[in-house]
Amino acid sequence: MRMMVFVKATEDSEKGVMPTTELLDAMMKYNEELVKAGIMVGGDGLKPSSAGKRVAFDGPGRTVIDGPFAETRELVAGYWLWEVKDMDEAVEWVKRCPNPMFGPSEIEIRPFFEMEDFAEIVTPEIAEREARLRAETEGR
């Protein structure tokens, strides 16, 4: 199962406070563990939301909003992409992560949609519609 693992932002990370060498060191060790366990597929850190932009959609309208954004705890400061056997395994690995921030912080785990999930969504109406569409195209 592929998991997106989000390191959530804090006031410090949003202010651009850099981690200490000790924390960087601990994080590097942790990342090495992830690699040796064969679950690490990718990941990176993100700049504070002050460097980001949002595009708001409303019908045909598009509005560009400059960062920084409020609701700090809902923002993302970094992410990993993991391949694990199940959610339990992902939770255990997250527990082993050093606290990535100075104060209290959160890490969120979200499974990707996989092939099987789409198989359910695709059947039966969409499949039928697609088959009809294909028949029409080929009949031309």
Binding site: V35, K36, G38, I39, M40, M115
Partner: peptide
């Protein structure tokens, strides 16, 4: 049987890490 492919890739990544 995708599970075996996943397992093999994981073994490959472990080996690449080691």
């Amino acid at each position: 049987r995708p599970a075996l492919c996943d397992e093999a890739r994981r073994l490959g990544r472990i080996l690449a890490g080691l």
